[in-house]
Computed example of a mutant assay.
Amino acid sequence: MYHPQVGDPLEALDTPSMIVDIALMEENIVRLMQRFREKRVHVRPHLKTVKSPELARLLLAAGAIGGCVAKVSEAEVMAQGGIEDLLITTEVVGKPKLLRLVDLVRQHPRIKVVVDSLAGAQALDQAMSAAQVEVNVLIDLNVGQNRCGVLPGEEALMLAQQLSKMSNIHLVGVQGYEGHLQHIHDPEERGRRCQQAMQALTETAAQLRAKGFPIEIVTTGGTGTAEICANCAEITEVQPGSFVFMDTDYRNALGPAYANALTILSTVISKPTPTRAVVDAGLKSLSIESGMPEPKGLTGIAYQPGGDEHGILTWSMSAASALTPLEIGDRIEFIPSHIDTTINLHDTYYAHRNGRLEAIWPVTARGKVQ
């Protein structure tokens, strides 16, 4: 059985395979880190995108101060891979999760979590107290996404006062994620609404400090808004993740700010008609909740899923004369519409430079949803 090796050409890969253009990825990382270095804002990339300690270490080497994860199980993978300074950006609720968190924080005390309720904070404090462990927390604010988070202002102040009475959790900051603004195409609207969200976040941070609470961290921002957030002087760190690889959804919102460095390599396995071909990459290889993936370099050809294992490519007869004919056996790269969920469908990154494999990274945190 063939197993790809570093040094092999891309042509040796079976399909579908998830491939990374290392040069483009490196350019994306350098470009983002330089932008925030100039703004004097820390970068804490969200690792739910890359799902890999190897890639997290590359981000740390480039200047990141740590990482974000969405779930305790992701934190376990990253901590085992040597990533110590982690923020779990989703509330940790329920006895099984709290027991896992206690074990994790005992071994990796720089891990931080968010809270947005008295009930959640009390359960967290009780779990930590029973294990004689302490943990730093951030208040999660609702800055307009209407997902998790307490309201800015008085509601956040009330929660901070309640947290101050707990012995094993310590308030160190606030988080406000404006996820609903990430993909707004109009830059003026995205900027205006993001500034409103940042005002709610930073004013609450100032109110908490005025009441004597030690707010050291004000964290926010995804790939679509991080640069806008960083223009607000009170922001201490941003949490972009998708910039590493990008996808068509972010590209359509941001333009050519970062390159599409990750694609799914597939093979044409059938051509039933002159205007329809079938590839071996379907719903098990490409996510579609943010739109259809884009055939790279094939303008005028549209993709749609044909089931779990198949993708259908179509084009018009009028466009056929201007297109390079597709034949059975041809290999096509697809740019995902949503990078995070597409990566979660694959076990392995095949990273190449100039068409030759330079690294093979396992997607270690794939499926870590707990």
Rank of each mutant, 00 (worst) to 15 (best):
Y2I: 14
H3E: 14
V6F: 10
V6C: 07
P9S: 09
E11M: 03
T15R: 02
M18D: 02
L24P: 04
E27D: 14
I29E: 09
V30K: 15
Q34K: 11
Q34R: 11
E38H: 13
H42P: 00
H46P: 03
T49R: 01
V50T: 15
K51F: 00
S52W: 00
E54D: 02
E54A: 13
L55D: 00
A61K: 15
A61I: 05
G66P: 11
G66E: 06
C68K: 01
S73H: 03
E74A: 07
V77H: 09
M78S: 04
G81M: 09
I83P: 06
D85I: 01
L87A: 06
I88D: 04
T89P: 03
E91H: 11
V92D: 02
V92K: 02
P96T: 05
P96W: 12
L98V: 15
R100F: 01
V102K: 05
D103P: 00
Q107W: 11
D116S: 11
A119S: 13
G120Y: 08
A121P: 10
D125V: 05
Q126M: 07
A127L: 01
V137D: 02
L138G: 12
L141S: 13
Q145Y: 10
V150H: 06
L151V: 04
A156V: 14
A156T: 14
L157D: 03
M158V: 13
Q162C: 04
Q162R: 15
L163N: 09
K165F: 03
G173A: 08
V174Y: 12
Q175I: 03
Q175C: 06
Q175T: 12
G176M: 03
I184H: 13
D186K: 01
R190M: 02
R190E: 03
G191K: 01
R192W: 05
R193A: 04
Q195R: 15
A197I: 07
Q199S: 11
A200W: 14
E203Y: 06
A206K: 14
K211N: 03
K211A: 00
G212Y: 10
I217W: 13
I217T: 15
T219H: 15
G221R: 11
G222K: 10
A226D: 10
A226G: 11
A226L: 01
I228Y: 05
N231Y: 03
E234C: 05
V238R: 00
V238G: 06
Q239S: 15
P240S: 12
M246Y: 12
N252E: 05
A253D: 01
A259P: 07
A261D: 09
L262I: 14
I264V: 15
L265F: 08
R276M: 12
V278I: 15
V279F: 07
A281Q: 07
K284V: 00
K284P: 02
S285C: 09
L286I: 13
I288A: 05
I288V: 15
M292P: 10
L298V: 05
T299W: 01
I301N: 04
I312T: 11
T314N: 06
W315F: 12
M317Q: 10
L323Q: 13
L323A: 06
P325I: 08
F334N: 04
I339G: 00
I339V: 15
D340I: 14
T341Q: 10
T348S: 07
Y350K: 04
A351N: 04
A351E: 02
A351L: 13
R353Y: 09
N354G: 08
G355D: 01
V363E: 01
T364I: 02
Q370I: 07
